[in-house]
Design a binder for these strands. Structure first.
Lengths: 102, 102
DNA sequence: TGACAATATGAACAACAATTCATATACTAA
DNA sequence: TTAGTATATGAATTGTTGTTCATATTGTCA
């Protein structure tokens, strides 16, 4: 049990925003794909089955929220997850789901 | 580092849904208030500053998603968090935010 | 340079979700 | 039973967000 400190409204909104970002199937799929290993936009399009435009739009949102970063080699842009918190969050969430639902 | 297993579409949607539930400021505020200790609807209205109707609506969503439960004594209904996963999720998220933003 | 490939982006649309308002239900106490 | 309190809920509205479409940008290689 961690010590609990009630966050102020600003922090509540930041936390809420992070969960909102992850709380979308398309973005979450991209995150899971990147969890395996870094990938280019076109690889993400293929493996996710989403359109190129949609993938780019959602990657931008993930990037603006410090969840992924990218590097460019020629025409290709490779995206990767920035840190491990996301991975931990996802694992806890999956545990929660498996316990609470059928 | 945890072992990684790519989830299927169904699991992705479940995980996404859970994050979506938490990813709303009003619900998150209620969760934080309940993290301190169980509270009645009217207590939640007072401490959150939200209308009674809004609080009830959002509590229903939290309940439908197995995040809170409730018990009734007379006219009053006390809500409480079901398990500790939420608390862990929130702490990780707060850590993430403090590291990545100013 | 010109043609092509990979990615990004603005605008429009459609779907969805949060909030409010009015009212219903359930319970208590007189 | 009646009045009053706590909570729940349906419908309407408003705001937000995901997705698509068309097009722009950036880089490669003949």
């Amino acid at each position: 049990m961690e010590k609990f400190i009630m966050p102020n409204q600003t922090e509540i909104e930041k936390v809420g925003n992070l969960f909102k970002i992850i709380g979308d199937s398309t973005r979450l799929k991209l995150i899971f794909l990147l969890l395996e290993k870094p990938k280019t936009v076109s690889e993400l399009c293929q493996t996710s089955g989403c359109s190129q435009s949609l993938v780019s739009h959602q990657l931008k949102i993930l990037k603006d929220n410090y969840i992924v970063s990218s590097s460019k080699q020629g025409n290709f842009v490779t995206y990767f997850l920035i840190d491990e918190h996301i991975s931990i969050l996802l694992n806890i969430c999956r545990t929660h789901i498996n316990e609470k639902e059928n």
